[in-house]
Every structure is written in C-alpha cells, then in structure tokens.
Amino acid sequence: MRGGLAAALVVAGLLLLNALFTGAVAPAFALPPYLLQVLCLAGINVTLAVSLNLINGFTGQFSIGHAGFMAIGAYSAAYFTVTFGEAVRAALGFLPAFARDGAVLLVALAIGAFLASIAGFIVGVPSLRLRGDYLAIVTLGFGEIIGVLILNIDAVGGARGYSGIPKLANFFWIYLFAALTILVVYRVVHSSFGRTLVAIREDEVAAEAMGVHTTRAKVISFVVSSALAGIAGGLFAHYLMYVNVRSFTFLKSFEIIIMIVIGGLGSISGSVLGAILYISLTEGLREFAQYRMVLFSLLLVILMIVRPQGILGHKEFVTFLTKRRRSIGAAPGTPGNA
C-alpha cells in the first residue's frame, strides 16, 4: 500500500512538473524550449546510465554496446508507432487523446524493450559463458552490426534517418521511466539475486565455487539492462521525432560509460548524478565552442586522478553522506592476497 501511495505521488508530481515546464499551468513557469529539451535528454541518459550500471557496475561485466540496444528499442518502437499507431488510436477512440497517445507509446516501448532484451539474450549467452573481456569485444561488434543493419533497412529510412515519428514522449514519460528504471535496478541489486551479481563482480571463480549459477545470473542481468536501454531508445525516438543511426554509434556507448564512471560504478545514485553532470557539462561548455571537448576531457582526467572510483564510488548518495567520516577512520588496506 505504501508503495502504491509513493507511486501515485511520483506520477502526480511528474504530471504537475510536466504541466509547469510546458507552460500549461501559467506561461510564466514555462522552461525555455532548449532547457526543457536538455532536461528531457538528461532523463533519457539517466535511464541509460542506471541500466548500464547494472551490468557494468554491479555485475562487473564490461559491455560497450549499450547504444546498440538503445537503437533497437528506438527503431522498433518508432516503426510500431508509425505503422500501427493510427490503427491503435482509432481502436481506442473512446479514450481521451492523451490516454490514446499514452497507450500507443506504452505498447511501442514494450516492443522496443522486448526486442532489445531478445538481442541482449542472443549477445549475452555466448559471450557471458566465457570469462574476461569477451563481452566487451562482442558488444562492440554488436553495436556496429546493428548500425549497419539499420542502414540497410529502407523501411526505417536507411542512411536518411527515420523521420515522421509522432511526438508521444514528453518530460512526464521520460522521467516516469527514469524513476521506474531506478526502482527496477534498485530492487534487483538489493535482492538475493543482486547479492550474487555483486559476488560475481568481486570474484567470479569464488562465486561459481559457492554454487552461484554465474552464467545464468550474468545473462539475466544483461537482458534486464538491455531491455531498459531499449525503453530509453524508444523514448528518445518519440521525443525527438527523428532518429538516425549516427546517434547510436559506439561513441554513444562510451558516453554512457563515462557517465557511470563519473558517478561511480556500482552506485545507482552515482549513475543519476553522472548522467546529469555529463549533460550539464557538455551543454554548459558550449560557449567555449571548439575548446569544449578539450575542456571536458580535461575535467574528466582531473576527476579520474582525484577520485578514480568515481564521485560516489560504490556508495549510494545517502550512505555517502552519513558514513563518510567512519570509513575514513576504518582499518587501512588488506593483507596481501597472493
């Protein structure tokens, strides 16, 4: 019941903010369109970062193909809306317009998530059976293959990009799914299953020796992470109304990795912070024109020297604040693990 109340509050809060930001309540409260767009893209990046952190941060497997799953979600969700959206809307004629839009979007996102998770399964099963860096190599290749595939599908625009996608996503939906992603990842991580994921990250051989189904756990974690990336992709497509393969290259994957590294691998609030910080920095540094990426890289290098474990490390924001003093006084170092 308490969960239901919290959910209702979050939905109401997001709806209110959405109305405020778009100027529906009073034009005085409206955000400038540019700012609102940055805010929305930040929300999508939160979803991407938190979901990638599940596999990279908590499970300790290095995936660099998150943009590939995002692309699958984006294109399949958009294709559904463009092709069947009208039919669904017509069938739901008895509903008010916003509910019809919402229904189409939800189905589109479900399809995107489903197909992305299938792709995650296909990529994950062979590469996660093996130890080490196979996943990194396979996911990198996978991202490129998805790009080439999409380029050659004329139904979704090929190299021209896919346009004419109705704008069904907005601040409300984007942040609703960001919240949902945080909830899902939080619950996975703070369950007995999450315990086994962290054990795999800490020492896969020992985890296996303690009877953990390591391959199964890794695949599940990877599939969940891919599905969430698919949702992020679907939102992205329905927010910008246009997608292009160039938005989903490995550069995008690296962007998401940078976000979770900034915030701290293995910290959900860290990923949220990292995603927001990344957007703020890249957008905020725009006035430095061509020096923008130089400055950005410099900041990253400084951060990694000062705090190699990311801003929050393994900790969540709340424990980071309360336990900070204690952990400084704790016994130093480990005895040599030969």
Binding site: R195, R201, D203, G211, I220
Partner: peptide, 25 residues
C-alpha cells in the same frame, strides 16, 4: 583467499547460502 572483498562479512556467507535457495528474480 578469494573473498568478496567489497561485500560485508554477512553477505559473503549469504551468497553461499543462496545456492540452496529457490528464490527467483
């Protein structure tokens, strides 16, 4: 020694207990 270093002492033992558990995700 191959403990799960970043996990608590209690969680190290719990992980091993999980191998007899039937909980699913």
């Amino acid at each position: 020694i191959r403990l799960f270093g970043e996990m608590t002492v209690l969680d190290n033992v719990k992980v091993a207990f999980d191998c007899r558990q039937a909980t699913t995700l």
